[in-house]
């Protein structure tokens, strides 16, 4: 899964929520080994994905503007101090 695909399919928030659920499921004592291994695998993939999301987020500050036709466009923000 490349970064763009990851961004589209998963947000950090949903990733963390799913992780919470997986850990809760793993805490069921009667879980079968197959299920546990599957959840564990999914969890480890999510951990990786969440870290990728955090590190690959575009550190961008943009400005939302309307162009001449009333369409919304974004521009790179240029700080007045610079």
């Amino acid at each position: 899964m490349n970064k763009d695909e990851l961004k589209q399919s998963l947000t950090f928030e949903t990733g963390i929520q799913r992780l919470e659920q997986i850990v809760r499921d793993l805490e069921q004592n009667n879980i079968s080994l197959d299920e546990a291994l599957e959840l564990f695998g999914e969890g480890i993939r999510l951990v990786k994905s969440c870290n990728i999301i955090l590190d690959s987020a575009e550190a961008k500050v943009k400005v939302l503007l309307e162009d001449g036709q009333g369409q919304l466009v974004t521009e790179q923000y240029v700080s007045g101090e610079n």
């Binding site: 919470e20 793993l26 805490e27 080994l33 291994l37 999510l46 955090l54």
Partner: peptide
């Protein structure tokens, strides 16, 4: 946020180890 992810990673591992 990283710590949060790491927390779940650790939780996953300890839980899986326990189950195994």
């Amino acid at each position: 946020l990283h710590a949060n992810v790491a927390y779940y990673a650790e939780k996953l591992r300890t839980r899986m180890n326990y189950l195994l």
